[in-house]
Computed example of a mutant assay.
Amino acid sequence: MTPEFTTEQKAMIRSVRELTQGNFIARGTRYLDGSFPWENLRELAGLGVLGMAVPEEYGGLGLPVFDTALVLEEIAKGCYVTAMAVLGEVGVQTRIIAHYAPEKIKQRILPGVCEGTNILAVCMTEPDAGTDVASYRTNTTVKSDRVIVRGTKTMISRAPEAAMFVVFTRVNGEPGREGIGCVLVDAGTPGLEITANYHTLGGENLHEVQFNDVELPRENLVIEHDGFRKLLNAFNTQRCLNPSISLGLAEGAFDQALKYAKERMAFGRQIGGFQGMRWKLADMYRDIELARGLLYRACASADPFPDPFLAANAKIACNEMSLRVTSEAIQVHGGFGFTDEALVSRLYRGARYGTLGGGTSETLRDLVGKRLMARDDDGDGILGRLIN
């Protein structure tokens, strides 16, 4: 079902679209070498976009997950790297600070997030543990009014630009999921070191970050108990925002393909005049709209975090759809679609990340399957469950 957009949502989408189509697409090739899109972020900060997840009392907009997803969708149509940079300011790391950090840290960090001066980096993945959170080795030891962090995180976005690192860590060596907490580490803290750089297919750089006996005030340990549950709550939001980028990438690629099919001539007519090409465009459009419905429904379930079952289904659908659609968009463009100068090429590169970050498709399929197996067989079927 098509949602009824509010006047405010329409205005924000139009403003972001103007920037994306007018500025971000033209700058897209600048960021293929790993350069950070500071210029784009400054322009988005002027619209309030970077403060979408920040409560109003700290200068933000405090918008729902659905509004945030709509904006990311629009940005991704023109620049994957910019969309991912914005995700870092409206995603799990900002929400962890807004929900769990002490007041003085909120006051110090969150206004700068809104202004685009405080970039945040979330540190979860480790060399020997990604989705397997229970196997994290990074540990925070509590010593009276201080804490000491030791360990290594890898595949970290925005590390050189970050003002603060939101680090998921074991606390006092407690094993398993129950031992997971979260600590905030300011850039420049002694013992924090960026030790490796990995350039990605999508254009971003990812990094390894080491915490070598980093000493912090006790208050920086913002989650000490029940951290795994709180992490999953925040990550269900990420499982709506990641696929909103995938949806935008697919839409941007489809728009480009449709335009090209109308303009490109072959054998005396538009290539869109050939049945095979029309069918290709029809399939792309259908796949986009099917995935959009799942995503918007998952976003609408947020209170304040989305339903995990709906978010997982939406992420699988959008991530995998985006790979198909962006690939087909390159096919429509022929050889030109394979060049860096072609927007569809850059959108395809970005689409490849979706199934990897925020929970792999395999992990989420298992989550969905377990939920289905755990349901009582009441005979009502899927529609019956919707109306009950």
Rank of each mutant, 00 (worst) to 15 (best):
L61N: 13
E224I: 02
P217N: 07
N212T: 11
G191H: 04
G337Y: 12
Y58T: 03
E43G: 00
L383R: 02
R278T: 07
L323V: 15
E263L: 04
M284E: 06
R218E: 08
L19N: 08
P3W: 04
A351V: 13
G88L: 00
Y296T: 07
A76K: 01
M124R: 10
R346E: 13
A98E: 10
G88I: 02
P308Y: 05
A261D: 05
K259I: 01
G59H: 06
P64L: 04
L44K: 04
G268I: 02
V167H: 00
N319F: 12
P306D: 03
G62E: 05
K106W: 10
S157W: 00
T7S: 13
S345R: 15
S144N: 13
S361G: 13
I105R: 05
G176C: 04
G78M: 07
I156N: 02
I97N: 01
P127V: 11
T355W: 10
E4M: 05
G28M: 12
A45W: 06
V65M: 03
I288M: 08
R218G: 06
T94G: 01
L70D: 12
I97H: 02
A329R: 08
L247T: 13
F24N: 08
L247K: 12
A101T: 14
V368P: 07
G334D: 08
E56V: 13
G337E: 14
F24L: 10
R30E: 14
W279R: 13
T360K: 09
L50W: 08
S345I: 04
V167T: 06
N319V: 13
E161D: 07
D366R: 15
R170W: 10
A291K: 03
I97R: 02
E341P: 00
K259W: 12
A257K: 14
F165C: 02
V122M: 11
Q256M: 12
G59R: 06
T20C: 10
L231I: 03
K370F: 09
A187P: 00
L383I: 10
L364S: 03
G191T: 07
D366M: 11
L61V: 12
R239W: 01
A196Q: 06
S157M: 08
V222I: 15
Y100M: 04
T189D: 05
P308E: 01
N23V: 15
A302H: 03
V65E: 07
D340Q: 15
S157D: 11
G203Q: 12
T200Q: 07
M265A: 02
I180V: 13
N205Q: 04
T138D: 08
E161I: 01
G60D: 14
A257H: 15
